[in-house]
Simulated assay, not measured.
Amino acid sequence: MSSSTSASVEARSQAFQTVFEDICREIQGSVLPDIVLPWADDDGAASDSCLLGPSLEGGMPGRLALHLKNNLVDLSAFDQGDYQD
């Protein structure tokens, strides 16, 4: 790999990290730290299921999803449901 390619990858990685860290600071208060959370359906009714945390209250923020998709992070696992699924 040439040094110019290496410098380009380094610059893109640094730019990705900077924006990612900014988003993480913004959503810090939305992170639910509990390891096991009671699961409620979309209507708010309790169920016998639990969610393994940590998780994000309200699911993955749009800005974070867009940043990851724009930077070629594979989010295909989330295509069939929301982030908390």
Rank of each mutant, 00 (worst) to 15 (best):
L56Y: 11
A65L: 01
A11S: 15
D22I: 04
L66Y: 08
L32K: 15
L52I: 13
S3R: 05
A40D: 07
A7L: 06
L32A: 10
D41I: 03
D48A: 14
K69M: 08
L75K: 01
D85E: 03
D22C: 04
Q14L: 15
Y83R: 05
S13R: 09
V36G: 03
S8G: 04
V73S: 02
D79L: 05
F20M: 11
S76I: 01
E10K: 14
S76N: 02
L52D: 11
Q80S: 14
D42L: 08
M1S: 15
Q84H: 15
P54V: 02
Q17G: 14
E21M: 11
L68K: 01
D82N: 15
D34L: 08
L32S: 13
S47Q: 09
L37W: 06
L56K: 04
S3K: 14
M1V: 12
Y83Q: 04
V9M: 14
D79G: 00
A45V: 12
L72I: 08
I35C: 09
R63V: 02
R25H: 15
Q28A: 14
G59L: 03
Q80G: 12
S6Q: 07
S13L: 05
G44W: 00
G53H: 00
L72F: 09
L51G: 02
S13Y: 10
D42E: 14
A7H: 10
L56I: 15
P54E: 03
V36Q: 04
D34C: 06
L68N: 04
E57V: 12
S2A: 06
E21T: 15
D48L: 11
S49Y: 10
I35T: 08
E21F: 01
V31S: 02
N70W: 02
M60T: 03
F16E: 07
D79I: 01
D41H: 07
S47L: 06
P61S: 01
S4A: 14
E57M: 12
D41M: 02
L56F: 13
P38F: 03
G59M: 05
P38I: 07
D82M: 11
M60F: 00
H67P: 00
T18F: 04
I23K: 00
V36Y: 13
R25C: 10
L72T: 08
S49I: 06
V36R: 09
D85C: 05
D42G: 14
N71T: 05
S4L: 10
I27V: 12
N70Y: 06
L75D: 00
V9Q: 09
Y83T: 03
R12P: 11
L32R: 15
R63I: 02
F16R: 08
A65I: 00
W39Q: 14
E26H: 05
Q84W: 13
M60D: 00
D42C: 11
A77K: 07
F78M: 08
R25D: 13
L37R: 08
T5F: 14
D22K: 03
L52H: 08
S49H: 10
I27E: 07
D22M: 09
